[in-house]
């Protein structure tokens, strides 16, 4: 197990290196850079900017250096936690991303927990009572959940939530707490604002997970070891929960790690509709405005989380499934 984990971690390093190059290349791909956009904007507003000034700016941001130098400077700084300056916001990237990442993760984590708490039991009921009324009902609901675009759900729920339940219609904080320092009141305010976004973000995931849980459990329920467990005299509940469900949870456990990047960037559209101060909208504007350091940092963070998530999934799966753990030995 230890060599397995070590091997996987070592494998992750060249992958991350490759990703960083690709991330940097993607940032460079579109014609022009932020400075060009910036200068053009100023000029179109009538400002006179001489070529010398442009050169000086290029110098300042290192844009006149060869690409590999720019890359090297960026990646070495990135590893040290210096993610550069955002042109658009004129702020260090780190301070821009910081709180948003925490809030994003909080909302997404909330949604994720909600997803599993709802989806796993429902999937189980659907599978053990296949084609019953409950199963059919959940199946229809799940298909609707998968099929509806979440931003639409967001709009509808926002309207009804605000109109009939008095839930806040957007943002993560009330006005009085918007820029206030952290306090119990602010946390409570945040939780109150989080229910709706978490529900909306969780809906399609819940629907999908119900289907996965139902399918894998159905697969496992017909296996001989379930009948063997019954033949041993186990209670039906125990036989089902201890054996097929335990096996059916594997695919769900193994995809938990992949949720990591989604925890940060997940549901950009929903965040924009609901006006959440999370990462999604920030990444979106960064890409639109060619704010290269901000965008590259995001892509790098998301890629790192993807790699880390996959690693986590692999380790989790090896931990819960002996067939994987001992796979290399046989």
């Amino acid at each position: 197990m230890r060599t397995f984990v070590l091997k996987r971690i070592l494998q992750a390093i060249p992958i991350l290196f490759g990703i960083s190059i690709i991330a940097f290349a993607i940032i460079q791909l579109p014609p022009g850079d932020y400075l060009t956009t910036y200068v053009n904007n100023l000029r179109s507003q009538g400002d006179v900017i001489s070529d010398e000034q442009v050169k000086a700016l290029e110098e300042q941001y290192g844009l006149n250096q060869p690409l590999y130098l720019q890359y090297w400077k960026w990646i070495t700084n990135f590893v040290r936690g210096e993610m550069g300056q955002s042109f658009y916001w004129n702020k260090p990237v780190r301070s821009l991303i910081g709180e948003r990442i925490a809030l994003s993760m909080l909302v997404s984590l909330f949604a994720l927990v909600l997803t599993y708490a709802i989806a796993i039991p429902i999937g189980l009921i659907s599978a053990t009572r296949q084609y019953s009324f409950a199963d059919n009902l959940f199946t229809v609901l799940a298909f609707i959940g998968v099929g509806l675009p979440s931003f639409l759900v967001a709009l509808v729920l926002m309207y009804f939530g605000n109109r009939y339940l008095g839930l806040s219609a957007g943002g993560l904080f009330s006005i009085e707490y918007m820029d206030a320092p952290w306090s119990l009141g602010r946390v409570l305010d945040l939780l109150k604002h989080m229910i709706l976004p978490a529900l909306i973000i969780g809906i399609s995931g819940t629907a999908g997970t119900i289907r996965v849980m139902r399918a894998t459990t159905l697969d496992e329920l017909s296996r001989p070891y379930v009948e063997a467990a019954r033949a041993r005299g186990l209670r039906e509940m125990v036989a089902v929960l201890r054996y097929p469900v335990r096996v059916a949870l594997n695919p769900i456990m193994s995809t938990i790690g992949w949720q990591l990047p989604a925890l940060v960037s997940g549901e950009t559209l929903v965040s924009m509709v609901l006006g959440l101060p999370t990462c999604g909208p920030l990444l979106y504007t960064a890409l639109i405005t060619q704010d290269m350091y901000l965008a590259a940092s995001f892509i790098m963070i998301l890629s790192t989380l993807t790699v880390a998530g996959t690693l986590l999934s692999d380790i989790l799966l090896a931990w819960i499934d002996p067939r994987i753990r001992f796979g290399g030995i046989q």
């Binding site: 296996r223 070891y225 063997a228 033949a231 041993r232 005299g233 209670r235 096996v247």
Partner: peptide, 28 residues
């Protein structure tokens, strides 16, 4: 699935199956 039947099943009547490996849980 009552207690009395379950006590007989496995305790007094036991059963073995066609596919031995598939009859054992793969993760236990």
């Amino acid at each position: 699935m009552g207690d009395e039947m379950r006590a007989i099943r496995g305790g007094e009547f036991a059963m073995i199956f066609q596919e031995p490996r598939a009859s054992l849980s793969p993760v236990h």
